[in-house]
Design a protein around this nucleic acid. Structure first.
Lengths: 219, 219
DNA sequence: GACTCTATCTCGGTA
DNA sequence: TACCGAGGTAGAGTC
């Protein structure tokens, strides 16, 4: 990784046009060639950047970075304060827990925690408008489409509505209802759900993980 | 801005749990206190981060960074290779051209470029579910709701559908139809638009800007 | 503060 | 490769 501190001005032409007047900034060049220009604030997002793959042409007073999509980043260097390189090596990468996929796995194991008597038909049930997270059957034998989100918002209801519409076109499944399951469901999403006859259920990820561990202990 | 190169392992507990095994990385601390941990690849996004406002407690072998929302980032430092600080000063900020707002301004000036005979009623026409980008009238005097996107995807159609539903409740506007306008419209969005009787139109930003300049030249 | 929508979104999965 | 959906989305603007 190369770190350059310099007074520079920058121009980007690509998906839009953007320019930066002269100021002192950090220019970060990673081993894969991607370039990011950071100011001393404003969270982690750089002011300008160019992802790999790209081509960097280094001239005396400017760097010209181009990529195969025809985007161009030009960095004019006015004054150089620091220029250092560091060998970092390969990164083993980030391990995550608690994303939607984990929630889906836990709920597929414990559909009862959504509603008593619910049993799983299958995960990622395919439809023409995308896969339904969980397709289940309720106590009365009715088919239930489940959409899982970490945070339940309006677009989750829209998504579930599209699935239900599509599933109803397949008469072999019989009558269909839907439930949005999330760790937290926004008031607007609840209102929209109710207005469309869609159910909703808030669940607690840690509690759910706990239940599963308890269940495993029984064996 | 402080730049630390160190072998470190990292844990984040907050909206999810995430952890990084030991490796050599860049730790960037900006003037506003935000912290970002970068590996030597993978675009501009850091592996882990903590935005300001936050509190950094620096111990001999670890940094503990907390924020008011109860999120915790812990950086264990195993070996320090470099630690430097640089005064960058205030940044004058980025100037952009070609974002959705510009597209909207151009189309408000030239509604004819969406469809012959179209005239503007108003921009950002307010409804209970958010503002409609452009409200227009067509050659037949029918009201047309226009949603503008740089890239037309399914959520653009959903948004426009909500607006139209809301506008139809206001009988003073008469019958309503909708058009999604974007520089590029994805196949799924086209299909959904057509299934809902919504029109779509791809437009070219540069061409549009050109037309407007030509129009100005006439005066 | 809550809600809304944009983004050079980024990133990962999949057909 | 393009498309599609999730994200610790972030960030800006509005109410």
């Amino acid at each position: 990784m190369r770190l350059v501190i310099a007074n520079c001005s920058v121009a980007y032409e690509g998906r839009l046009d953007a320019s930066l007047p002269a100021a002192t900034r950090l220019i970060m060049v990673k081993a894969d060639g991607c370039v990011a220009i950071h100011s001393d604030g404003g969270a982690y997002k750089p002011l300008n950047w160019m992802n790999s793959p790209n081509t960097i042409v280094e001239q005396a007073d400017r760097w010209i970075i181009t990529n195969p999509r025809g985007e161009i980043l030009t960095i004019h260097l006015h004054e150089l304060f620091s220029d250092s390189s560091h060998e970092l090596g390969q990164d083993p990468g980030l391990v995550k827990d608690g994303v939607e996929a984990h929630l889906q796995a836990l709920l597929a194991d414990l559909p009862e925690s959504i509603e008593p008597g619910l049993t799983l038909i299958r995960r990622e049930y395919p439809t023409a408008v995308g896969p339904v997270d969980l397709l289940c059957r309720d106590e009365q034998g009715k088919t239930v489409a489940i959409e899982i989100k970490r945070r339940g918002e309006i677009d989750g209801i829209e998504q579930l509505t599209r699935y239900i519409e599509c599933l109803r076109a397949d008469s072999s499944l019989g009558p269909i209802r839907g439930i949005l399951v999330a760790q937290q469901i926004k008031p607007q999403a609840r209102v929209l759900a109710e207005s469309r006859g869609i159910g909703w259920r808030e669940i607690d990820y840690d509690e759910l993980r706990g239940s599963r561990i308890d269940e495993l202990r029984l064996f």
